[in-house]
Write a protein that binds this DNA or RNA. Structure first.
Length: 721
DNA sequence: AGCACGCCGACT
DNA sequence: GTCGGCGTGCTC
């Protein structure tokens, strides 16, 4: 069909399967269409002269509809119906009495204008152009496609994450034009890193350096340094994007960037701005009126023009992982962007994830860290205290504090606020060797062992194999311990130990942003630590959550504990100014040693080596398949037929624990009352794309053929034991 | 997922 | 001869 006017009979006949059907259809069209001379719909309408076909992405996340649909462009919409605009189209309708009807109007995006279509039926017309704003640009579309492929998801789902819902009011206003390029800023705090100035120089020369930056401790420095990297990029005329784990830290980088380049160069994209201001700011970016974005994870898709720098702060924070399908991670999306948009990449944190270590190890990024001397000069004094080591001090006993922790707090409280990090509720303990505290692992697949109930045999949480007689591979011990969840009561008991000191708490629903620089006990759960006002920092920190953090049944528990501790310890004054940290945990444990030495990168490298040995992510790529036993088995079988890589290893399936009632359900969690299973599929690094493709093909096949219940697929599952 | 089409049994 | 059950397949 050369013209998508919908009246031509050629389209419906040309590929008719057999002669009979062809004749029947022709007869019916003749017979039934002619008497209806004046249909009120599109049939009489003029179609666009040039490029009368619009290829449309319909806004339905269903994986088996993950393709484009062609629609005819009415002449009246010719001008506005450009690639990238939002449209409404009829979808899902059948054909009756020779004309289209039924089928709801759904939203979509035009991705392309074409001269012809390969669809053999008759094209329906676009019902409405919602707005002439080309929001889904080719580059953003390309990014969404890549993310959908990596995560075995549908394009429409990713586009929903990437393009915010429309706000007509915001679209009507023009975006203010940006001011001139700002000057190249001074390197500032980057001088503290041997390779820091060189990194900035590379940015200033429009190169695309990639770095994993281990930020020095201190409450304020990192935000300013991140802003300086962005400002340097802006000075070249290119754009910059920084993604932060929460609105609080995003606001700090935003403020630092404003101090460097003034207003008008950048926007803050966070949820707490409200939908309309947020869309206005997003539009300013999309229109090219603003070239820099500071935001939380949804900003990872921000359509920054000529991206020169993609940055992420604290990539180990779980809020960088999107909850909505297909659950992409900001670090992975920004990596993708840095490569395809040829931008610089900066991953910064006080701690270091295994993924970050791997970026360095693989040669993709260079480490950006300070010398040991510099680290020692700014880090607090860090000491360990054994659990239950309460000494003879009655006050320490009443607070259930090790005596070192109690003495440290008492001394520090003369000079300033003292942070007390306490465990959060709901940490599940994992089984460890009672003697040496080595986590109990399956001898077959290295999954975590679980006790199904009192007196029952041990079972692997991954492959479900039973382990009747466990023996520790490190010390040959045979007894296991499940660590006790830390008592939150400690916070209250502190009040009795320090009766004259004000106590402030931060955590859960009541998170304090900052506290005055005055003596006080500040009790906070990990991640909710208030920043002390001024530049000084806490006089001391007590990290009381050691066991709770280290005994979580998660591959990342060590990394996560260290990250939490470093986050708190980074807010403490340098050793030279009396800053002191006491961590209550077993001294010999790897994350504890890494904290004492302040060596997050070294810790991550050692973890990475372990993962390589055990075949864990990120050295391998994993996918989790959850659903009813039938759904999981069906999908795995279909994936096998759909080109699952030969090296793929299927672990499990194992029954999924029933989620606690009242907890918000995540995608992939079983609905109440249903017993679900989970299987893990593991492939070597490099076969990740093939894994995602096979799972998606399997999913599509089963959905279209309606084979049994549907399974949920998650690439890079977070909680794999 | 919706939704229409179509090929079989109860009813006028 | 017609209405309507829900199994099957498509959605421009």
């Amino acid at each position: 069909m050369s013209r998508g006017d919908g009246n031509g009979e050629g389209g419906s006949q040309r590929h008719a399967p057999e002669q009979l059907a062809l004749i029947r259809e022709t007869v019916r069209e003749r017979k039934e269409r002619q008497p209806r001379a004046k249909p009120r719909t599109w049939r009489g309408a003029e179609m666009a002269e040039r490029l009368p076909v619009a290829r449309v992405l319909v806004d339905k996340g269903l994986v088996h509809l993950d393709r484009y649909f062609d629609y005819a462009v009415p002449a009246a919409m010719d001008e506005e119906a450009q690639p990238g605009v939002r449209v409404r189209v009829r979808f899902g309708a059948g054909e009756r009495e020779g004309r289209r009807e039924g089928g709801g109007l759904i939203n979509g995006f035009i991705v392309e204008r074409r001269a012809d279509t390969d669809f053999t039926g008759r094209l329906a017309p676009i019902a409405q152009v919602l707005s002439p704003e080309p929001v889904l640009t080719p580059q953003l579309l390309q990014l969404c496609r890549a993310v959908a492929d990596r995560y075995a998801g549908s394009l429409a789902d990713v586009v929903q994450l990437a393009v915010p819902p429309r706000r007509a009011k915001a679209e009507k206003q023009p975006s203010q034009r940006r001011p001139a390029k700002p000057p190249v800023p001074e390197p500032g705090g980057w001088e503290r890193y041997p390779d820091g100035p060189a990194f900035l120089r590379a940015l200033a020369e429009k190169a695309a350096p990639r770095a994993v930056w281990t930020a020095l401790p201190g409450p304020g420095g990192w935000a300013d340094e991140l802003a300086r990297a962005m400002a340097t990029t802006l000075a070249t005329g290119r754009g910059a994007l920084a993604v932060l784990p929460d609105g609080k830290s995003a606001a700090r980088v935003d403020a630092a960037l404003t101090a460097l380049v003034g207003e008008g160069q950048h926007v803050l994209l966070t949820a707490d701005a409200g939908p309309e201001p947020r869309y206005r700011r997003w539009l300013a970016v999309s229109r090219g009126a603003v070239r820099a974005v500071v935001g939380t994870r949804a900003a990872m898709f921000a359509p920054v023009r000529r991206l020169g720098l993609a940055a992420i702060w604290e990539d180990g924070d779980s809020s960088h992982s999107e909850e909505r399908a297909p659950q992409p991670h900001a670090r992975e999306v920004l990596l993708q962007r840095a490569v395809t948009e040829q931008a610089a990449f900066l991953l910064g944190a006080h701690s270091c994830t295994v993924e970050a270590a791997q970026l360095v190890e693989s040669g993709f990024a260079r480490p950006l860290a300070a010398d040991r001397d510099t680290v020692r000069a700014v880090m607090p004094r860090v000491r360990t205290a054994a659990e239950g080591d309460e000494g003879r001090d009655p006050a320490a006993r009443s607070a259930r504090l090790p005596s070192l922790a109690w003495r440290t707090a008492r001394e520090a409280l003369v000079r300033g606020p003292v942070l007390v990090q306490v465990p959060r509720r709901g940490y599940v303990p994992r089984l460890v060797c009672e003697r040496c505290r080595e986590p109990a692992r399956c001898t077959h697949c290295s999954g975590p062992l679980e006790a199904a109930g009192e007196g029952t045999a041990l079972r692997c949480g991954w492959c479900a194999r039973e382990v009747p007689q466990w023996r520790c591979p490190m010390c040959s011990g045979t007894r296991l311990r499940g660590s006790v969840i830390g008592a939150r009561r400690t916070a209250e008991e502190l009040g009795r130990a320090f009766p004259s000191v004000p106590i402030r708490t931060s955590g859960g629903a009541h998170v304090l942003e900052s506290v005055p620089d005055r003596p006080a006990l500040v009790v906070a759960t990990p991640g909710a630590e208030p920043v002390p006002e001024g530049e000084a920092g806490y006089a001391a920190a007590l990290l009381l959550d050691g066991w709770a953090l280290l005994s979580r049944p998660d591959l990342r528990s060590g990394e996560e504990a260290l990250r939490r501790w470093l986050g708190a310890a980074s807010l403490v004054r340098p050793q030279g100014e009396g800053g002191s940290v006491v961590v209550v945990a077993e001294e010999s444990m790897r994350p504890v040693q890494a904290l004492v030495r302040w060596d997050p990168a070294g810790h991550a490298l050692r973890e990475l080596a372990d993962r390589a040995e055990l075949g864990f992510p990120p050295v391998s790529r994993m996918a989790a398949v959850t659903g009813s036993p039938e759904a999981v088995a069906g999908l795995l079988a279909a994936a096998g037929d759909a080109g699952l890589p030969e090296e793929a290893q299927v672990l499990g399936p194992v029954p999924l624990p029933v989620p606690e009632p009242g907890r918000p359900r995540n995608p992939g969690d079983p609905p109440p009352g249903e017993l679900w299973e989970r299987a893990l599929v593991r492939v070597p690094r490099g076969s990740g794309a093939a894994l995602a493709a096979a799972l998606k093909t399997a999913q599509v096949g089963r959905l279209t053929r309606r084979e049994g219940p549907i399974a949920h697929v998650r690439i890079d599952p977070l909680d794999i034991g």
